[in-house]
Simulated assay, not measured.
Amino acid sequence: MSKHVLFVCQSCHHSSQERAENQLADGTLLLNQLNTLYAEQFPANELEIQPVGCLGTCDRPCAVAFSALHKPTFLFTNLPLTESTVALLQFGEVYLANKTGDISGKYFPQMLRSASIAKIPPVE
């Protein structure tokens, strides 16, 4: 099986106000939530959760991207911090199980249907 990666922007932040020096960005909090839930519920380690400095969607936080060789990349933005963790891992299961990665929106968890989504074709 090819490597599947969930990229998580750790610099995303919903508030337009400056964060206190010791306050974590929302993206870092999302990354921590994903890592914790993934370790508890998905022991097979089929999906690598990888932090990135910035995914360039600063006006639409929080942002993540699912990517794998020979599959389209799915970029999700406008993700609410507290409600999206479970839905993202559910989508990850669908993405892993689908050989081509060509996933119709009807198979997205309900919570992700309200996010901004980009489907980027695979590099062949």
Rank of each mutant, 00 (worst) to 15 (best):
Q41S: 08
P51L: 11
S67T: 12
D26L: 07
S2Q: 14
L89T: 00
L24F: 07
C12A: 11
S16P: 07
N78F: 02
L29E: 09
F91D: 05
E83D: 07
L6C: 06
Q90D: 10
E18D: 14
F7A: 12
P121L: 03
T77K: 07
G105V: 01
S116C: 02
K106Q: 12
V64R: 00
S2G: 13
K119S: 03
P122F: 05
G53E: 10
P122C: 07
A44N: 14
G92R: 04
A87N: 06
E93P: 11
A20E: 13
T100V: 03
V123H: 02
F91K: 02
F42C: 05
L69G: 07
F76C: 00
A118C: 10
R113H: 08
S116D: 06
E21M: 05
C58F: 12
C9H: 15
T57K: 12
A68S: 13
V5A: 03
L112S: 03
S116R: 06
L34P: 09
K71Y: 01
F66Y: 06
N78V: 07
F76S: 00
G53C: 10
V86G: 08
K119W: 02
A44E: 14
N32W: 09
A39I: 14
L31D: 07
I49S: 07
E93R: 15
P43G: 06
E83P: 06
L89I: 02
M111W: 05
G92E: 04
E93L: 12
C9Q: 08
S114H: 11
H70F: 11
G92V: 00
V8Y: 02
T57P: 01
I120V: 15
V64I: 13
T82W: 02
S67Q: 10
Q10M: 12
G101C: 08
A25E: 15
F76G: 00
C58P: 09
L37P: 09
S11A: 13
L30I: 13
D26M: 04
E40F: 13
M1H: 11
P109R: 04
T36D: 14
N45S: 15
T77Q: 05
F76P: 03
I117D: 00
C12G: 13
M1I: 12
H70N: 11
Q33N: 15
L89S: 04
S11F: 03
A20G: 14
L34S: 08
K119Y: 04
T82M: 04
V86I: 04
R19A: 03
A87W: 02
A25S: 15
L81K: 00
L30R: 10
Q41N: 12
L6P: 03
Y38I: 05
T28S: 15
E46I: 02
K99S: 11
E18I: 07
L112M: 00
L89Y: 05
L31F: 03
S15L: 11
